[in-house]
Simulated scan of single mutants.
Amino acid sequence: MTTKLITYSNSQPKSKLWMAAIKPPMYSVAIIPIWVGTAVAVAQTKNLNAGVFSTFLTAAICIVAWSNISNDVFDSETGIDKNKAHSLVNLTGNKRLIFWIGNLFLILGLLGILAIAWWQRDLTIIGIILACCAIGYAYQGPPFRLGYHGLGEILCFVAYGPLAVSAAYYSQTQSWSTTNLAASIIVGTVTSLILFCSHFHQIKDDLAAGKRSPIVRLGTALSANLLPWICGSIYTLTSLLTVLNIFPTWTLLSWLSLPFAIKLCRHVLQYHDQPEKVSNCKFIAVGLHFVCGLLLGLGFML
């Protein structure tokens, strides 16, 4: 990840705008919950169902693709993306096409989950993932648009933390675990941090569209000063759970992601009120999310 200035405009090459619209780095939010939940399951059962893991991972990526694509569609209806050159709707000029491409990804993802349920003769995982999808829709979809009321980070925490991580664990064990629930809190917190950081550079557009994101409600300065506390809570909780023997000692490897957290906090504290310079902070947060989650899961595996 880098703090190099990242901006997008209609004057830039289409290939760059398309890559920004597709958001490849953001798919770590699909990978990490499945990885961590599976890692906890393997640590506790000493067994890995590779077929279930690969199917779940593919399904999760498809569902996150649906979420990202449909959010572009729903945002185009409120006008919040009118200045967003790398919106899929703005790039294609065809909202209906983008809407149905998103639905296709959703169907593919749910088919993967249905396959797992069929193999295990257990419908529980379908219920969990449908709950995740419902949260994903309620975040931006009409008539709810809960993200516009400042609830996005809470919804993100629940969907990508306790629900997704628990679903991954259940897909391997068909049971529940308090250790896995504790791990899901860490994953959910880091995932919500990405969404939180994504609001700093678009505060004017959010205000114009009536979106009351946490950054709008708190202001950029106070929000920036909250970041060190949020990041600190991730490492404090991991250490506490290790001391209490809930997590294995190897999960302290996640501390190796601390440089990403420090870089994120410093960058946002310095540029919180300069949209063009702070706009890439969400990608630093993605780097933190990926490395922290990868090492946390590896700690359980080891």
Rank of each mutant, 00 (worst) to 15 (best):
P248Q: 09
A41G: 00
K23C: 09
L195D: 01
A182H: 02
V73H: 09
A30F: 11
Q44Y: 13
T3I: 09
G93F: 04
I203A: 12
L91M: 06
W35F: 15
T124H: 11
N103M: 04
A138M: 10
W250P: 03
I129F: 11
L227F: 01
L253Y: 10
Q202R: 10
Y169E: 00
L288D: 06
M19Q: 06
G147E: 10
V89N: 02
L296Q: 01
I31S: 05
V243F: 12
Y139W: 11
S67N: 10
S198V: 09
K4D: 02
C197T: 13
S223F: 06
L114D: 05
V89I: 14
A30C: 09
T58G: 15
R212T: 04
L264V: 02
D75F: 03
T238W: 05
T78F: 14
L114H: 05
C265F: 06
G297K: 00
L111T: 01
L244M: 08
C197L: 15
T7G: 09
P162S: 02
R217L: 10
I154N: 02
V190D: 00
W18V: 14
T249V: 12
A224E: 03
C265V: 10
A131Q: 02
L269P: 00
F157M: 11
I34D: 12
N10L: 07
S175L: 03
I34K: 11
G210Y: 08
A134H: 01
G141T: 03
F144W: 15
C231F: 10
A159D: 10
W35G: 05
A134Q: 02
A39E: 04
Y139Q: 09
T220E: 12
Q140E: 13
C292V: 09
M26W: 09
I61G: 06
Y27H: 13
L298R: 07
L295V: 03
P228Y: 13
Q120T: 11
A30P: 05
Q172P: 07
K263Q: 15
T58H: 14
S233L: 04
G93A: 11
T173G: 09
N94G: 05
L5A: 04
K282T: 14
N83T: 13
F157D: 04
T242R: 12
G93N: 05
